[in-house]
């Protein structure tokens, strides 16, 4: 059975499904009893949601054309 510190070290692997079945079971047992680790895992799994979205979505038609021009004007592109 893990203690809280060991669980925190494996937390990211747990969220990404990279633990063995035995390790997964240990994490689940631990979090049944430990509200702080339960909270920590829940928070770690949501942190990426707070990340700002990429500003640049798909390129606009204008950007695409100017990139195309730059590309085709390079003499060594072929």
């Amino acid at each position: 059975m893990f203690n809280c510190k060991q669980l925190s070290a494996l937390s990211s692997d747990y969220l990404d499904g990279k633990l063995t079945s035995r390790q997964k079971l240990s994490v689940r047992f631990h979090t049944l009893m430990c509200k702080y680790c339960r909270r920590f895992l829940a928070q770690l799994s949501m942190v990426a949601a707070f990340l700002p979205e990429n500003h640049s979505s798909d390129g606009s038609a204008e950007e695409i054309e100017s990139q195309l021009k730059r590309l085709l004007s390079k003499p060594d592109h072929s």
């Binding site: 990429n54 640049s56 979505s57 798909d58 390129g59 950007e63 695409i64 054309e65 990139q67 195309l68 590309l71 085709l72």
Partner: peptide
Amino acid sequence: QNAFREVIGRYQAAMLS
């Protein structure tokens, strides 16, 4: 040229990021 347009449109943003 249209293929270049397509590939730029598809991947430029991910490349920049």
